[in-house]
């Protein structure tokens, strides 16, 4: 399967997806003009990875500002993760934020609601 290495820009996060390690990492701001175009391949990668192997999936996030369509896209990914978790797959999401910016952490916490997989919001100095 094709891994992802998308360089970030002012409006889009840096995204990397590595099927060898099972790590999907995203960091930066996300307010793209077309969230479907940006996150379509990410969702596709997660679906393919979950379908083609039984290795664990880890998400490493360090997202700052998200516009509404990005919030929806990220939830779509989390829904896939949740479904995989319910099927007994090993999955974990770590969302890092700068302790100096507590509001970002509070917002990340909002995403954890409704999900039962291992979802940690971690403040870093």
């Amino acid at each position: 399967m094709k891994d992802l290495h998308l360089p970030g820009s002012q409006a889009t996060p840096t995204i990397s997806a590595d099927s060898a390690t099972g790590v999907l990492a995203m960091h930066g701001d996300s307010y793209p003009e077309n969230a479907f175009e940006l996150y379509g391949p990410v969702i596709e990668w997660v679906e393919t990875y979950l379908a083609q192997s039984d290795k664990p999936l880890y998400m490493e996030l360090e997202l700052l500002y998200l516009n509404t369509s990005s919030i929806k896209a990220i939830m779509d990914v989390f829904d896939l993760v949740q479904a995989a978790h319910e099927n007994g797959r090993r999955v974990a999401v770590n969302w890092y934020y700068d302790l100096a910016n507590k509001r970002v952490g509070e917002l990340a916490e909002e995403f954890t609601e409704d999900y039962t997989f291992a979802f940690q919001v971690i403040g870093r100095p």
Partner: peptide, 20 residues
């Protein structure tokens, strides 16, 4: 519906942060 209300709530908070 539950999902939409979550998205709206989170989005509103992001807007609040931007405003601040």
């Amino acid at each position: 519906l539950r999902r939409i209300s979550r998205i709206v709530r989170i989005s509103d908070q992001y807007q609040g942060v931007l405003r601040e």
